[in-house]
């Protein structure tokens, strides 16, 4: 197997006396969807925030594409190619699709040697169209404020934005929350398409059907520790729940 895209070794993150992430190691390989499961407070969000530059880990190492990395700020992780899509999608509902895809990174016409710059909306529109087309996403109109789009469509805009900016690892936090069932299916479909294009995805979720629908591998956390890691075909929902609530624990068995 080729070298992992992301490799976490013995990562520890403490908040005061609380050890939120305790000695977690994890590999993400190219073109694979890994589900990160765990109850509230299991430490999965903290782990992810260490990868996406929100928190700095106290111990351990993160290697991205083979190189040790440290992300003091979220923008550092993003420029390295790690894109995190949180539940609030970081979209401006009052702007249209291209404006959102290029938010903060607008393409400009330069006049008078850069003294006067105007927005190149035409180019941004064509680029947005192409970016959505590669994901096989179709909207009736790209130039309406996205508040008229459904939850799944806005999720798609956020994913298209990440892809357009060459995300090489995608982290998605509960992407199917607050969506209707058909929309959930469409978002899962998008995740599969990302995988088919070779972009690995870490999927943080509570939703068991999502896990079995798209994940290749499943990592379960409990009280800050990684308690198991399974191929999707080797496990089932009730076993995973037992890991999530702490009834099963591979680490403990090994230690015993």
């Amino acid at each position: 197997m080729s070298q992992p895209v992301l490799s976490i070794r013995n990562l520890v993150k403490r908040f005061g006396g609380l050890t939120a992430v305790n000695d977690v190691s994890l590999d993400i390989n190219p073109g694979e969807v890994v589900a990160l499961l765990g109850d509230n407070g299991a430490g999965k969000s903290t782990l992810i925030k260490c990868v996406s530059g929100v928190h700095l880990p106290d111990e351990g190492e993160i290697r991205f594409e083979g190189k040790p990395v440290s992300f003091p700020k979220p923008i550092d992780a993003r420029s390295a190619g790690i894109e995190t899509i949180y539940q609030d999608l970081a979209l401006a509902n009052n702007l249209d699709v291209p404006a959102n895809i290029f938010l903060g990174r607008e393409v400009k016409h330069r006049y008078l040697g850069g003294l006067i710059n105007t927005l190149n909306d035409k180019l941004m529109l064509t680029e947005a169209e192409q970016s959505l087309a590669t994901l096989d996403i179709q909207f009736p109109s790209l130039t309406q404020p996205i508040e008229s789009l459904s939850g799944g469509q806005r999720q798609a805009v956020a994913i298209a934005r990440a892809i357009y900016w060459k995300a090489r690892l995608m982290i998605m936090d509960e992407p199917t929350n607050n969506l209707g069932v058909p929309e959930q299916q469409k978002v899962l479909e998008l995740i599969r398409r990302l995988r088919d294009q070779g972009v690995p995805v870490i999927l943080i979720t509570h939703t068991m059907p999502d896990v079995f629908a798209v994940a290749d591998r499943i990592v379960v956390m409990h009280r800050g520790r990684k308690v198991t890691e399974k191929r999707t075909g080797d496990t089932n929902a009730s076993e995973l729940v037992q890991y999530m609530v702490g009834a099963l624990d591979d680490g403990r068995e090994v230690a015993a």
Partner: peptide, 12 residues
């Protein structure tokens, strides 16, 4: 498995 239109067209 891959149906072509990923996202339903938003109601005009």
């Amino acid at each position: 498995m891959t149906d072509s239109k990923a996202i339903p067209a938003g109601a005009r």
